[in-house]
Computed example of a mutant assay.
Amino acid sequence: MSGELRDNRGRGDAEWGLPPIHPEGRKYGIIAVAIALVVLLIFDWELLGWPLLALSAGVFAFFRDPERVVPQGDRLLVSPADGLVSLIALVPPPAEMQHATEDGGPGLGTEPVMRISIFMSVFDVHINRSPIAGTIRRIVYMPGRFMNADLDKASEENERQHVLIQSTDGKTIGFTQIAGLVARRIVPFIKPGDIVAAGQRVGLIRFGSRVDVYLPVGTEPKVLLGQRVIAGETVLAEIGTAGLLEGVSQ
Protein backbone atom coordinates (compact mmCIF):
# COMPACT_ATOMS: atom_id res chain seq x y z
CA MET A 1 0.00 0.00 0.00
CA SER A 2 1.32 3.44 -0.92
CA GLY A 3 2.56 5.44 2.08
CA GLU A 4 3.01 2.37 4.28
CA LEU A 5 6.04 2.43 6.56
CA ARG A 6 8.41 -0.50 6.11
CA ASP A 7 11.76 -1.27 7.71
CA ASN A 8 14.69 -3.69 7.78
CA ARG A 9 13.17 -5.67 10.66
CA GLY A 10 10.14 -6.94 8.81
CA ARG A 11 7.59 -4.23 9.49
CA GLY A 12 5.09 -3.69 6.68
CA ASP A 13 3.76 -5.83 3.85
CA ALA A 14 5.29 -6.85 0.53
CA GLU A 15 3.50 -8.36 -2.42
CA TRP A 16 4.04 -8.64 -6.17
CA GLY A 17 1.70 -7.01 -8.63
CA LEU A 18 1.58 -5.53 -12.09
CA PRO A 19 2.65 -1.86 -11.98
CA PRO A 20 -0.01 0.69 -12.95
CA ILE A 21 0.32 2.77 -16.11
CA HIS A 22 0.87 6.47 -15.57
CA PRO A 23 -2.03 8.61 -16.93
CA GLU A 24 0.41 10.47 -19.19
CA GLY A 25 0.97 7.26 -21.15
CA ARG A 26 -2.50 5.78 -21.35
CA LYS A 27 -3.51 7.83 -24.37
CA TYR A 28 -0.44 6.70 -26.31
CA GLY A 29 -1.13 3.06 -25.49
CA ILE A 30 -4.77 3.37 -26.52
CA ILE A 31 -3.81 5.06 -29.80
CA ALA A 32 -1.27 2.30 -30.53
CA VAL A 33 -3.86 -0.42 -29.82
CA ALA A 34 -6.45 1.33 -32.01
CA ILE A 35 -4.03 1.54 -34.94
CA ALA A 36 -3.11 -2.14 -34.55
CA LEU A 37 -6.77 -3.20 -34.47
CA VAL A 38 -7.59 -1.15 -37.54
CA VAL A 39 -4.74 -2.80 -39.43
CA LEU A 40 -5.79 -6.27 -38.23
CA LEU A 41 -9.59 -6.12 -38.40
CA ILE A 42 -10.29 -3.68 -41.20
CA PHE A 43 -7.36 -4.08 -43.58
CA ASP A 44 -6.59 -7.68 -42.54
CA TRP A 45 -2.85 -7.06 -42.72
CA GLU A 46 -1.71 -9.64 -40.18
CA LEU A 47 1.95 -9.33 -41.11
CA LEU A 48 1.86 -5.71 -39.93
CA GLY A 49 -1.00 -5.84 -37.42
CA TRP A 50 0.45 -8.32 -34.95
CA PRO A 51 3.79 -6.52 -34.62
CA LEU A 52 1.86 -3.27 -34.09
CA LEU A 53 -0.18 -4.93 -31.35
CA ALA A 54 3.03 -6.09 -29.68
CA LEU A 55 4.40 -2.57 -30.01
CA SER A 56 1.33 -1.17 -28.26
CA ALA A 57 2.05 -3.44 -25.30
CA GLY A 58 5.55 -1.97 -25.25
CA VAL A 59 4.11 1.55 -25.19
CA PHE A 60 2.05 0.69 -22.10
CA ALA A 61 5.11 -0.90 -20.49
CA PHE A 62 7.20 2.22 -21.14
CA PHE A 63 4.82 4.32 -19.03
CA ARG A 64 4.62 1.85 -16.13
CA ASP A 65 4.73 3.51 -12.74
CA PRO A 66 5.68 1.03 -10.00
CA GLU A 67 5.64 1.83 -6.30
CA ARG A 68 9.02 2.28 -4.65
CA VAL A 69 10.12 1.94 -1.03
CA VAL A 70 12.08 5.15 -0.34
CA PRO A 71 14.88 5.05 2.29
CA GLN A 72 14.31 7.72 4.94
CA GLY A 73 17.09 9.97 6.23
CA ASP A 74 17.76 13.72 6.09
CA ARG A 75 21.22 13.21 4.59
CA LEU A 76 20.34 10.47 2.10
CA LEU A 77 20.15 11.36 -1.57
CA VAL A 78 18.21 8.80 -3.59
CA SER A 79 18.34 8.19 -7.32
CA PRO A 80 15.89 10.31 -9.35
CA ALA A 81 15.86 7.78 -12.21
CA ASP A 82 16.05 4.12 -13.13
CA GLY A 83 18.99 3.26 -15.33
CA LEU A 84 22.73 2.86 -15.70
CA VAL A 85 25.31 5.07 -13.99
CA SER A 86 27.07 6.01 -17.22
CA LEU A 87 29.24 8.93 -16.08
CA ILE A 88 30.70 10.17 -12.78
CA ALA A 89 32.76 13.36 -13.03
CA LEU A 90 33.88 16.44 -11.12
CA VAL A 91 32.43 19.37 -13.12
CA PRO A 92 31.25 22.96 -12.62
CA PRO A 93 27.45 23.13 -12.18
CA PRO A 94 25.43 24.40 -15.17
CA ALA A 95 25.25 28.19 -15.34
CA GLU A 96 21.47 28.05 -14.80
CA MET A 97 22.04 26.45 -11.39
CA GLN A 98 24.98 28.48 -10.12
CA HIS A 99 23.42 31.73 -8.91
CA ALA A 100 20.90 32.33 -6.13
CA THR A 101 17.23 31.73 -6.88
CA GLU A 102 14.67 34.50 -7.33
CA ASP A 103 13.31 33.95 -3.80
CA GLY A 104 16.76 34.19 -2.23
CA GLY A 105 17.55 30.49 -2.06
CA PRO A 106 21.18 29.47 -2.62
CA GLY A 107 22.39 28.18 -5.97
CA LEU A 108 25.07 25.53 -6.48
CA GLY A 109 27.87 28.07 -6.92
CA THR A 110 30.75 27.84 -9.39
CA GLU A 111 33.02 25.38 -7.57
CA PRO A 112 33.22 21.95 -9.29
CA VAL A 113 30.99 19.28 -7.76
CA MET A 114 30.42 15.59 -8.41
CA ARG A 115 27.95 14.88 -11.19
CA ILE A 116 26.30 11.46 -11.50
CA SER A 117 24.76 10.75 -14.91
CA ILE A 118 22.05 8.08 -15.15
CA PHE A 119 21.20 6.82 -18.63
CA MET A 120 17.67 5.49 -19.18
CA SER A 121 17.06 3.16 -22.10
CA VAL A 122 13.59 2.65 -23.58
CA PHE A 123 13.28 -0.43 -21.36
CA ASP A 124 13.65 1.50 -18.08
CA VAL A 125 10.91 3.13 -16.02
CA HIS A 126 10.87 6.79 -17.06
CA ILE A 127 9.09 8.37 -14.09
CA ASN A 128 11.60 10.66 -12.36
CA ARG A 129 11.58 11.22 -8.59
CA SER A 130 12.92 13.83 -6.21
CA PRO A 131 16.34 12.88 -4.78
CA ILE A 132 15.63 14.65 -1.46
CA ALA A 133 12.83 16.21 0.54
CA GLY A 134 12.62 19.97 0.24
CA THR A 135 11.32 22.95 -1.70
CA ILE A 136 11.55 23.39 -5.47
CA ARG A 137 13.50 26.64 -5.88
CA ARG A 138 14.03 26.80 -9.63
CA ILE A 139 12.99 25.04 -12.84
CA VAL A 140 14.73 26.12 -16.05
CA TYR A 141 13.83 24.62 -19.42
CA MET A 142 16.51 24.78 -22.13
CA PRO A 143 15.75 23.92 -25.76
CA GLY A 144 18.44 22.02 -27.60
CA ARG A 145 19.44 19.08 -29.75
CA PHE A 146 18.48 15.40 -29.51
CA MET A 147 21.83 13.62 -29.70
CA ASN A 148 22.58 10.39 -27.86
CA ALA A 149 21.92 11.13 -24.16
CA ASP A 150 24.79 8.81 -23.19
CA LEU A 151 27.33 11.33 -24.52
CA ASP A 152 28.96 13.71 -22.04
CA LYS A 153 28.22 16.79 -24.19
CA ALA A 154 24.48 16.02 -24.05
CA SER A 155 24.52 17.85 -20.68
CA GLU A 156 25.18 21.12 -22.51
CA GLU A 157 23.68 20.62 -25.99
CA ASN A 158 20.50 18.53 -25.67
CA GLU A 159 17.03 19.70 -24.73
CA ARG A 160 17.01 19.68 -20.93
CA GLN A 161 15.33 20.91 -17.77
CA HIS A 162 17.26 22.00 -14.67
CA VAL A 163 15.70 21.66 -11.21
CA LEU A 164 17.03 23.09 -7.94
CA ILE A 165 15.74 21.69 -4.63
CA GLN A 166 16.58 23.14 -1.23
CA SER A 167 16.41 20.58 1.56
CA THR A 168 14.96 21.29 4.99
CA ASP A 169 18.47 21.82 6.40
CA GLY A 170 19.37 24.36 3.70
CA LYS A 171 21.42 22.16 1.37
CA THR A 172 20.77 22.67 -2.36
CA ILE A 173 20.69 19.75 -4.79
CA GLY A 174 20.45 20.13 -8.54
CA PHE A 175 19.36 17.63 -11.13
CA THR A 176 18.82 17.87 -14.88
CA GLN A 177 16.42 15.92 -17.07
CA ILE A 178 17.95 15.50 -20.53
CA ALA A 179 16.15 14.42 -23.69
CA GLY A 180 17.86 11.87 -25.93
CA LEU A 181 17.77 10.49 -29.46
CA VAL A 182 14.15 9.34 -29.26
CA ALA A 183 12.88 11.49 -26.39
CA ARG A 184 10.97 14.54 -27.57
CA ARG A 185 9.34 15.95 -24.47
CA ILE A 186 10.17 16.50 -20.81
CA VAL A 187 6.96 16.50 -18.76
CA PRO A 188 7.18 18.18 -15.31
CA PHE A 189 4.80 17.38 -12.45
CA ILE A 190 6.13 20.21 -10.25
CA LYS A 191 6.57 23.98 -10.21
CA PRO A 192 8.73 26.44 -8.21
CA GLY A 193 7.57 26.72 -4.61
CA ASP A 194 6.28 23.14 -4.38
CA ILE A 195 7.31 21.14 -1.33
CA VAL A 196 8.28 17.57 -2.24
CA ALA A 197 9.14 14.42 -0.33
CA ALA A 198 12.18 12.30 -1.09
CA GLY A 199 11.23 9.85 -3.82
CA GLN A 200 8.14 11.82 -4.86
CA ARG A 201 7.31 11.71 -8.58
CA VAL A 202 8.44 14.97 -10.20
CA GLY A 203 8.22 14.31 -13.94
CA LEU A 204 9.01 12.01 -16.85
CA ILE A 205 10.93 12.06 -20.11
CA ARG A 206 9.35 10.29 -23.06
CA PHE A 207 11.21 7.47 -24.80
CA GLY A 208 14.84 7.23 -23.70
CA SER A 209 16.89 9.89 -21.94
CA ARG A 210 19.21 10.78 -19.05
CA VAL A 211 19.23 12.48 -15.65
CA ASP A 212 22.27 14.26 -14.17
CA VAL A 213 22.52 14.78 -10.40
CA TYR A 214 24.83 17.42 -8.92
CA LEU A 215 25.99 16.59 -5.40
CA PRO A 216 26.79 19.26 -2.78
CA VAL A 217 30.44 20.22 -2.27
CA GLY A 218 32.14 17.67 -0.02
CA THR A 219 29.83 14.82 -1.01
CA GLU A 220 30.86 11.87 -3.15
CA PRO A 221 28.81 9.05 -4.71
CA LYS A 222 27.93 5.79 -3.01
CA VAL A 223 27.30 4.21 -6.41
CA LEU A 224 29.81 2.96 -8.96
CA LEU A 225 30.29 3.58 -12.66
CA GLY A 226 28.34 0.91 -14.54
CA GLN A 227 25.96 0.21 -11.64
CA ARG A 228 22.22 0.01 -12.26
CA VAL A 229 20.12 2.21 -9.97
CA ILE A 230 16.42 2.38 -9.11
CA ALA A 231 14.54 5.66 -8.80
CA GLY A 232 13.45 6.43 -5.26
CA GLU A 233 15.26 3.41 -3.80
CA THR A 234 18.99 3.41 -4.58
CA VAL A 235 21.00 5.73 -2.31
CA LEU A 236 23.30 7.76 -4.57
CA ALA A 237 25.10 9.59 -1.77
CA GLU A 238 25.00 10.64 1.86
CA ILE A 239 25.34 14.41 2.08
CA GLY A 240 28.65 15.45 3.64
CA THR A 241 30.38 12.08 3.26
CA ALA A 242 33.21 11.25 0.86
CA GLY A 243 35.51 8.33 0.22
CA LEU A 244 36.67 5.98 -2.50
CA LEU A 245 34.47 2.98 -3.29
CA GLU A 246 35.62 0.25 -5.63
CA GLY A 247 33.68 -2.49 -7.38
CA VAL A 248 34.47 -5.49 -9.55
CA SER A 249 32.45 -6.29 -12.67
CA GLN A 250 31.56 -10.00 -12.73
Rank of each mutant, 00 (worst) to 15 (best):
F175L: 04
G232C: 00
G49Q: 08
L77E: 01
I178K: 00
E67A: 14
H22K: 09
R64G: 00
S249A: 12
T234G: 00
E233D: 10
E46V: 14
P20F: 03
S130H: 10
G134N: 08
G247A: 15
V235Y: 05
K153I: 12
V248L: 11
I178G: 03
R75K: 07
A57N: 08
I165K: 05
M97L: 13
G107H: 01
R6V: 15
G180C: 12
G109L: 00
F62P: 06
P19D: 09
L5M: 11
G17H: 12
I239E: 09
M1R: 13
P221T: 02
F189Y: 13
F43H: 15
E67N: 13
V223P: 00
S117P: 04
N148F: 14
L151H: 10
E238V: 05
A32K: 03
F207A: 11
T234W: 13
T172E: 00
L77F: 00
G83P: 02
L84I: 06
G83R: 02
F63N: 11
I165Y: 09
G144S: 12
L76R: 12
P216C: 08
L87R: 00
M114A: 10
A149W: 06
D44S: 15
L37Q: 01
A231V: 06
F119L: 07
M147K: 15
H162R: 01
P80Q: 08
H22Q: 05
K153F: 07
T219R: 09
S121F: 04
G12R: 08
D82Q: 09
E157P: 01
T176L: 01
I190H: 07
V202L: 07
I127V: 15
G208V: 04
I127S: 09
M147H: 15
R138E: 12
L90T: 09
F43K: 15
M142T: 10
M120G: 09
G109W: 10
V38C: 04
A231P: 13
S56W: 09
I136V: 14
G170W: 11
L224G: 07
P192T: 00
G49W: 03
F175N: 01
L84V: 05
V113D: 00
Q166S: 01
P94E: 02
P131C: 02
D103Y: 03
Q166H: 01
L55C: 15
G83V: 09
T101N: 11
G3W: 06
Y141F: 12
G199Y: 10
A34K: 07
V213T: 02
T176V: 12
V217Y: 10
L41S: 04
D7M: 02
P20N: 03
I118L: 02
R228L: 05
I136Q: 07
S155R: 14
S130L: 05
Y141S: 10
A81S: 14
G199P: 03
V39S: 06
A36I: 03
R64F: 04
P71N: 14
F119E: 00
R68Q: 01
D194K: 13
G3D: 04
D65H: 13
G193I: 05
I21Q: 08
E157T: 03
P80K: 06
D169T: 12
N148E: 15
V78Q: 06
R64T: 02
P92M: 08
S79D: 07
P93R: 02
M120V: 06
G104Y: 14
A36R: 06
V33K: 09
D13P: 11
D74H: 11
L77I: 12
G240S: 10
T172N: 04
G208P: 04
V69W: 03
V235S: 01
G240K: 05
G83A: 08
N148V: 14
